[in-house]
Computed example of a mutant assay.
Amino acid sequence: MVTALGVAQDADGVGMDALTHRRVIGAHWENPGVVAGLEVSGAAGLRYQASAGVAVCSTGGSDGSVEAYWPGGLTLEAVTAGDGAYPRIDTVYLLADTRAGGQVSLHVAQGTPSASPAHPVVPAGGLRLRDMTMPAGASATISASPMGSVDYAIPYGAKMGRIGYGSNTSSVLQDWSTKWWSQAPAETMMLATDRLVTVKFTWRASVDGEQVGSFYAMPVVDDQDMGDGLDECLVAHVWARQSVEWRMVLEGGRPHRVDVMAKPNLGRPRFTWRGLRTVEVIDEGVAR
């Protein structure tokens, strides 16, 4: 029997059950992650702490998701003091027990000291809040520093705005050859789903005198050409800010490196880049 969110169970227990509830919640979110708060920091002892906040947690698959509240406090486990020679990475994570009467709890997975430390494994269902670098010789977690980024939960269908940005402020005379030149590579955030994005290249360039020059531009994603290289862009004698855009789909499940490559039109006058080149990756929503 299928029921709906907001339908109470009757005397025979027919109505909304916990699994159906989790599946409905899961459909509202593109990915597990932090909704608000839950800022992780060290403390005076050997436990970490997280501020009050809300997160979307899931064990994956058809089990759906829960929206979990943490009132703020310390991890259940304590870690050991810093190694005498090497740093390590500790991962603080939230765990929401979906069994009847289950509780939300804060935990830490302790990493292994190394000259190049690796991230520890978080148990199934645990939501990583923050990786913390514990330095060699530290006697308390207050000496640990956050690393990497926070994974935020994204409502299904929402636009995330700018998810990648690269800039190049050099003023240089364009190399006069047939080579494609990188302009301002941008690293995107982790993408939970396939996303429709706009890649926008903005520049300022000029030609001496009152002649007109041009160059060809092409977007590149993870070193793969995403255009035909035939987009010709005007360069005049004025330092006018200009831009060109492309729309494309970026694959979910990982971050991406997005760049714009440019090469000059050798049949026109040589030009100079005038201190402004940017590549923006702007999210337009879920790719359907």
Rank of each mutant, 00 (worst) to 15 (best):
A109C: 09
V14L: 15
L106H: 02
A85E: 14
I25M: 11
D283Y: 04
V122C: 13
R288W: 03
D83T: 10
G227M: 02
P155F: 06
A118I: 02
F271P: 00
A287S: 14
A158W: 02
R277N: 15
S143I: 01
T202D: 05
A96R: 03
R88T: 03
T169C: 03
S206Q: 04
E39T: 12
V279I: 11
W273F: 06
M261L: 11
Y93W: 13
P117I: 11
Y69M: 10
M147V: 13
Q224K: 13
A43P: 00
V207Q: 00
Y152N: 09
P269A: 05
G125I: 05
F271M: 02
Y152F: 07
S167L: 01
V281M: 13
V197S: 00
L46E: 01
M261R: 07
G209N: 07
E284Q: 15
G161N: 07
A109E: 04
G209Y: 06
A186I: 05
G61K: 11
V54E: 01
Q211D: 09
A27I: 03
E210V: 02
A184T: 02
M1S: 15
P185E: 13
L94V: 06
G42M: 07
D231F: 10
T80V: 06
H107I: 05
G82W: 00
G60E: 08
G252F: 08
S243R: 03
W239A: 15
H237S: 12
M218Q: 09
V212F: 05
G6E: 15
G15E: 02
Q224L: 07
G166F: 07
R268H: 03
I282Q: 06
M1H: 09
G64S: 05
A186M: 02
P117F: 05
A52Y: 02
L173T: 08
V258L: 06
V92D: 00
R257T: 14
R99K: 12
Y48M: 04
L196N: 13
P135L: 08
S139I: 14
S167E: 04
G45S: 09
G73C: 08
P155Y: 04
G42V: 04
S139A: 15
A262E: 14
E187M: 10
V258F: 05
G102C: 14
V207L: 01
D90M: 06
M226Y: 05
L95V: 12
W239T: 14
V244E: 04
T98S: 08
A44D: 07
V244W: 07
S51I: 03
Q224E: 10
V122H: 11
D10T: 08
V220N: 14
S214R: 06
L250V: 15
V220E: 14
W181N: 09
V34S: 02
L5V: 13
T80K: 10
A236H: 10
D208Y: 10
V104N: 04
D151G: 09
V108Y: 02
G73F: 08
D194Q: 07
R23D: 00
M248W: 07
S214N: 12
V260E: 01
